[in-house]
Amino acid sequence: MSFRYVTAASALFAVFLAGCNGGTPLPDPRLNGRDAEFMALAPKAGVSSQYERYLVDYKTNEPVGSIIVDNRSKFLYYTMPGGKAVRYGVATGQDAMAFTGRAYVGGLQEWPRWIPPKDMLERWPHLQPTADAGGLPGGPDNPLGSRALYLYQNGKDTLYRIHGTNEPDKIGQAVSSGCIRMRDIDAIDLYNRVKIGTKVVVL
Results as ranks from 00 to 15, higher is better:
36 A>E: 13
174 A>F: 02
67 I>Y: 03
182 M>K: 01
153 Q>W: 01
2 S>R: 10
133 A>R: 13
43 P>S: 11
92 T>K: 02
27 P>H: 09
183 R>G: 05
4 R>I: 15
4 R>P: 06
7 T>D: 08
26 L>A: 09
89 G>C: 05
176 S>E: 02
136 L>R: 09
150 Y>R: 13
103 A>H: 03
194 V>A: 12
21 N>Y: 12
146 S>R: 06
121 L>Q: 08
180 I>A: 04
145 G>P: 09
87 R>C: 03
142 N>D: 08
177 S>L: 15
162 I>G: 07
87 R>V: 07
28 D>G: 00
31 L>G: 03
9 A>C: 06
108 L>S: 10
91 A>M: 03
87 R>H: 03
14 A>W: 07
147 R>P: 05
30 R>W: 02
164 G>A: 06
36 A>N: 03
147 R>Y: 09
163 H>T: 05
164 G>L: 10
101 G>P: 02
74 K>D: 09
56 V>Q: 11
142 N>T: 04
81 P>V: 09
84 K>A: 04
56 V>R: 12
184 D>H: 06
75 F>N: 02
37 E>R: 13
139 G>Q: 14
22 G>K: 09
186 D>L: 02
39 M>T: 13
178 G>N: 01
94 Q>D: 01
94 Q>S: 08
166 N>I: 00
55 L>D: 14
79 T>V: 04
140 P>T: 03
196 I>P: 03
120 M>A: 07
69 V>T: 07
168 P>K: 02
87 R>N: 02
203 L>H: 10
